[in-house]
Amino acid sequence: MQSSPWKVLSSHVSAGVLTEGWQLNTIEDADGDAPRICTFEVPVTFDAPFYAPPVVQLGLTGFDIDQRDSARLTLKAESITSAGFVATITTWAGTRVYGAEFQWLAIGA
């Protein structure tokens, strides 16, 4: 039985108001009945694919949030495959997010 060596990949990612599709800094005119939840997805493709989906860890390294409201921000790794994953940045209520930075680390075979 032959074992595969571990592979470790990592990188730094920034997204914000200059990124196409970014809407986390806007508050749409809502009727007030439904709570605001706003997400932005950042697709990440590994430089070299893994044999199987790796373990992915994310670390928030910076953000730019409007000072008029509480800082509400989540960062999740989703849809992890051997070729990449999607980092989902979410905010809610009245928080306006102008930018977010994070690092990711993928470990697998």
Rank of each mutant, 00 (worst) to 15 (best):
Ser79Phe: 13
Ser70His: 08
Trp6Leu: 14
Asp47Val: 10
Lys76His: 08
Phe85Thr: 07
Val86Gln: 13
Ser10Val: 01
Trp22Asn: 07
Ala87Leu: 06
Asp29Gln: 11
Thr88Gln: 05
Gly62Gln: 03
Thr26Glu: 15
Ala52Gln: 11
Ile80Glu: 09
Ala15Lys: 15
Phe40Glu: 04
Ile89Gly: 05
Arg68Ile: 06
Gln67Lys: 10
Val56Arg: 00
Thr88Val: 14
Ala77Lys: 06
Gly94His: 02
Leu75Gly: 04
Gly21Ile: 03
Val56Asn: 00
Leu105Trp: 02
Phe102Lys: 00
Gly21Phe: 08
Arg72Cys: 02
Ala52Ser: 12
Trp22Lys: 08
Leu9Cys: 05
Gln103Gly: 06
Leu73Arg: 06
Ala71Asn: 15
Val8Cys: 13
Leu24Phe: 15
Ile80Phe: 11
Ala109Thr: 13
Leu73Asp: 07
Gln103Met: 03
Asp64Gly: 05
Thr45Phe: 13
Gly84Arg: 03
Pro5Tyr: 08
Trp92Pro: 00
Gly32Met: 03
Ile65Gly: 13
Arg36Ala: 02
Thr95Gln: 09
Leu73Glu: 09
Trp22Thr: 06
Glu20Gln: 04
Val56Pro: 04
Ile80Asp: 10
Asp33Cys: 06
Asp47Ser: 12
Gln57Ile: 05
Leu73Tyr: 01
Thr19Ser: 14
Thr45Leu: 12
Ser82Glu: 13
Gly32Ser: 03
Asp47Thr: 13
Ile37Ala: 04
Ser4Ile: 11
Val8Lys: 13
Ser79Trp: 11
Gln103Arg: 13
Phe85Val: 08
Ser4Asp: 12
Thr39Met: 07
Thr91Met: 00
Gly21Leu: 04
Gln67Val: 10
Tyr51Asn: 02
Ile80Lys: 12
Ser4Asn: 14
Gly16Cys: 11
Glu28Phe: 09
Val42Asn: 07
Ile80Leu: 12
Ala77Glu: 06
Ser4Val: 14
Asp64Pro: 06
Asp29Cys: 07
Ser10Trp: 07
Thr95Asp: 10
Thr91His: 01
Trp92Val: 01
Leu24Asn: 14
Gly108Ser: 09
Ala93Thr: 00
Ile80Met: 12
Val97Lys: 10
Val56Cys: 02
Ala106Val: 02
Ala93Lys: 01
Val97Thr: 14
Trp22Arg: 08
Ala109Leu: 11
Glu20Ser: 06
Gly21Cys: 04
Gln103Trp: 00
Gln57Arg: 12
Val55His: 07
Ser82Lys: 14
Pro49Tyr: 00
Gly16Met: 09
Tyr51Pro: 00
Gln67Pro: 15
Val56Ile: 02
Gly21His: 08
Leu24Thr: 13
Leu58Lys: 03
Gln67His: 13
Trp6Thr: 14
Ile89Gln: 03
Phe46Met: 00
Asp47Ala: 12
Leu9Gly: 04
Thr90Met: 09
Val17Gln: 12
Asp33Trp: 07
Thr19Lys: 09
Pro53Tyr: 14
Asp64Glu: 10
Gly62Tyr: 05
Met1Trp: 07
Ala106Cys: 04
Ile89Met: 05
Glu101Asn: 15
Gly62Lys: 02
Gln23Tyr: 08
Arg68Lys: 14
Gly94Leu: 02
Phe102Trp: 00
Thr90Trp: 02
Val13Ala: 02
Ser14Lys: 11
Gly62Asn: 07
Pro35Trp: 00
Val56Asp: 00
Gly108Thr: 09
Thr95Gly: 10
Trp6Lys: 11
Ile89Asn: 05
Arg68Phe: 14
Leu9Glu: 09
Ala34Arg: 01
Thr26Leu: 15
Thr88His: 03
